[in-house]
C-alpha cells in the first residue's frame, strides 16, 4: 500500500514538468504580454527596452522557460510578474477560501445525496423515486454560473438574506456552497441510487433479512457497506471537477479563491503566476484522486486484502 502511494506521489514529478511546459508555452505564445498594460503614450523606446529586459521578454521563450524550470526544480515557483509577490504565497493566501468552499459544498452535497439516493433506491419506482430522478437530472443539466446568478438575484437582491459577494463570515458561504454543491449532490444521489439498487437485490441482503437483522442495519451496514466503491468514485471525480471548475463559481460571487486568481493571471498575461496556479491546482487534483484510491482500501476490506496479497494481485489492483 505504502509503495503504491509513494509511486503515485512520484508520478507527480512528470505531471508537473509536462503541465508546466504545456501551460508556459501556451501563455508565452499568446498575443500580448504583461508589458502592454504598463506602457503609456509617453513611454520612450529606452524605457520599453528596460521593461522588456526586466522580464527577459527580449530573449527567446526557451530561455525564459529554462529559467522558470530551473527555479521550479528547486521548488521555487517564482514571483508574480505584476505584483512581484511570491506565487506560492499568493496561492497559499487564497487557498483556504477555496478549500473551505469546497468543504461546505461537499457537506451539503454528500449530506443530502446519501439519504436521498438510499431512499430513492429503497422505494424505487414510486413517486418519491421519480421526483428524485427528475431532481438529479435537472441538477446535472444546470450550468453552475446560471444557478449562481439565479440565487444571487433571488436571495441577495430580492430578499437580501445573503451577501452578494466576497468572503465575509459564515453567511457569505451559503450561496456559493449551494451553487457548487448542487452538481455534486445530483451526481452522487444518482450514483448512490443505482449502486444501492444493484446491491438491494443481492442474495446476501436476503440472507441478512432472513436471519432477522433489523431493516435499519440491513440498509446501513449490509447494503451501503457494499455500495461504497462507485459512490466514492463519483464523489472524488465530481469533487475534483468542482475544485477545478471553482473558478466559475468564484467569479460569479467575487469569491477570493484560487480560481479567480488564475483567471486574473491569465487575463493579465502574468505567465509565472498563471503557470504556478495551474501546476498547484493540478497537484491538488492528482492528490485528490489518490485520496479516492486510498479511500477504497479504507471502506472495502476486499481491496485492502489485495494490497496485502502477493505481487500478482497487487498488479491487478494497479491495472
Amino acid at each position: 500500500m505504502l509503495r503504491y502511494v509513494l509511486r503515485r506521489i512520484l508520478w507527480l514529478i512528470p505531471v508537473i514538468i509536462c503541465v508546466s511546459f504545456i501551460i508556459y508555452t501556451l501563455l508565452s505564445l499568446a498575443p500580448g504580454t504583461i508589458v502592454d498594460k504598463m506602457i503609456t503614450d509617453s513611454t520612450t523606446q529606452a524605457e520599453l527596452q528596460e521593461i522588456m529586459a526586466k522580464y527577459d521578454l527580449d530573449k527567446p521563450m526557451v530561455y525564459r522557460y529554462a529559467k522558470y524550470m530551473w527555479g521550479l526544480l528547486q521548488g521555487d515557483l517564482g514571483t508574480s510578474q505584476i505584483t512581484g509577490s511570491s506565487v506560492w504565497q499568493s496561492f497559499i493566501a487564497r487557498l483556504p477560501n477555496t478549500l473551505w468552499l469546497a468543504l461546505a459544498s461537499l457537506v451539503i452535497g454528500v449530506g443530502l445525496s446519501l439519504p436521498l439516493g438510499i431512499l430513492a433506491a429503497k422505494y424505487s419506482s414510486t413517486i418519491w423515486d421519480n421526483l428524485t430522478t427528475g431532481f438529479t437530472l435537472i441538477g446535472m443539466s444546470m450550468p453552475s454560473f446560471w444557478l449562481g446568478l439565479l440565487l444571487l438575484r433571488w436571495f441577495s437582491l430580492d430578499f437580501k438574506i445573503f451577501p452578494a459577494g466576497g468572503n465575509a463570515g459564515l453567511k457569505s458561504f451559503v450561496l456559493p456552497a449551494i451553487t457548487s454543491g448542487l452538481m455534486l449532490m445530483a451526481m452522487v444521489t444518482r450514483q448512490t441510487r443505482s449502486a444501492m439498487l444493484e446491491v438491494l437485490h443481492s442474495d446476501y441482503l436476503r440472507t441478512a433479512r432472513a436471519k432477522g437483522v433489523p431493516e435499519k442495519s440491513v440498509i446501513r451496514v449490509h447494503a451501503l457497506g457494499n455500495a461504497w466503491i462507485p459512490i466514492i468514485t463519483t464523489i472524488g471525480n465530481v469533487l475534483s471537477r468542482t475544485l477545478a471548475g471553482q473558478a466559475i463559481v468564484e467569479s460569479v460571487f467575487s469569491w477570493p479563491g484560487i480560481g479567480r486568481l488564475t483567471i486574473e493571471a491569465v487575463e493579465q498575461r502574468d505567465v509565472t503566476l498563471a503557470c504556478g496556479c495551474v501546476i498547484l491546482t493540478s497537484i491538488i487534483y492528482v492528490l485528490l484522486l489518490l485520496l479516492v484510491d486510498i479511500m477504497y482500501a479504507v471502506v472495502d476490506p476486499r481491496i485492502r486484502a489485495q494490497y496485502q496479497g502477493t505481487k500478482k494481485s497487487k498488479k491487478a489492483v494497479m491495472a
Binding site: V15, R241, L243, A244, T262, I263, V266, V278
Partner: peptide, 13 residues
C-alpha cells in the same frame, strides 16, 4: 490532470 476549464482558458487565450 490539467483542470479542463483552466486548460480551455489558456488555449483560447
Amino acid at each position: 490532470s490539467i483542470p479542463g476549464l483552466l486548460l480551455g482558458m489558456c488555449i483560447v487565450t
